[in-house]
Write a protein that binds this DNA or RNA. Sequence first.
DNA 1: GTCTATATACAGATAGAC
DNA 2: GTCTATCTGTATATAGAC
Lengths: 180, 180
Amino acid sequence: MSRPPRARESVLDAYEDVVIADGPAAATMDAVARAAGVSKGGLLYHFASKDALQSAVIERMSSRGVAEMADVAASPVGAIAAFMRSSIMHNTPFDRTIVTVSRLAQNGDAVASDALRRLRDVWEETLRPHTRDETALQLVMLVSDGLYFNNALSTGSVPGPDLDDDALAALIALVERSAA
Amino acid sequence: MSRPPRARESVLDAYEDVVIADGPAAATMDAVARAAGVSKGGLLYHFASKDALQSAVIERMSSRGVAEMADVAASPVGAIAAFMRSSIMHNTPFDRTIVTVSRLAQNGDAVASDALRRLRDVWEETLRPHTRDETALQLVMLVSDGLYFNNALSTGSVPGPDLDDDALAALIALVERSAA
DNA sequence: GTCTATATACAGATAGAC
DNA sequence: GTCTATCTGTATATAGAC
């Protein structure tokens, strides 16, 4: 916990960069070292194995996820609208981390899948009091999942939103009418 | 086109099995050959490279996707309900194929991402006449994406639905009320 | 804390027998 | 059409100098 060294964090950033740009298959230790601007030996000083790198980014997601959720719950525009807005990618640190972990999960990493499911469960708990019933809660969660999935599909970078601002506002209004 | 040899199809099935169970990273030529019950040489007779295997499963998805869409459009329960029901996994051949291609896409395969996006566009066209406006159309598409994403998350197998029948029926009713 | 050099393993793909 | 054997590249990880 305490505070991780700067160098470690920037290696982790580089790892996310490569996974987001080219997928987990391309995120070799060599590629990550190159992206981080260190040698492979330098990388391995901070993360003794590829597994350690993956674990670290999964932990990073969970801790950033908790912070994000606190923001959503406290938002003046209301939890549902804030949650939906947070579900479209803006290339924030948390966006980058969750896309990375999603890709690891799809690639067969069971630890990543579990962490995502746990995070999703916590979000569900947070939003439950803001929805009129379980069906409405599922609607909100699934629309959010859909937004994430679509954004995560594009390779090359974290894409901007597929919906423009007006379309997103209309969608939020529709979901709130249906679910709040 | 015409009709592909039986052996080829069963190799393709084995490839899907491995990708669904353990992710693209685990789907080595050796592992696929083992799952298909042939030697590596035998596998390579049917698919000269790993790339050929991936291309074949992507084509399979596109052709199965068109058939699925025709069923949805012609369904007596209405296109939206049929579409949503088709979005939860029942371990059909099409379900298995689309999960496989989704995983390839997340793993950084640009051809897979493009094929998925094209299929999604065609579905959007099909459903547009059945929704009251663009916002409603987006709602339907995103809920469907969310259902797929959640199902695709689980490793180990194509999971059963997270929602029971009643919950799904209620969700469909809510979406139809909001969107149809 | 970062580097170079290297050991080890395994992937994808080829060659050619049957 | 399916097999075994093998080549070649590349990935992870270690050893140890600076």
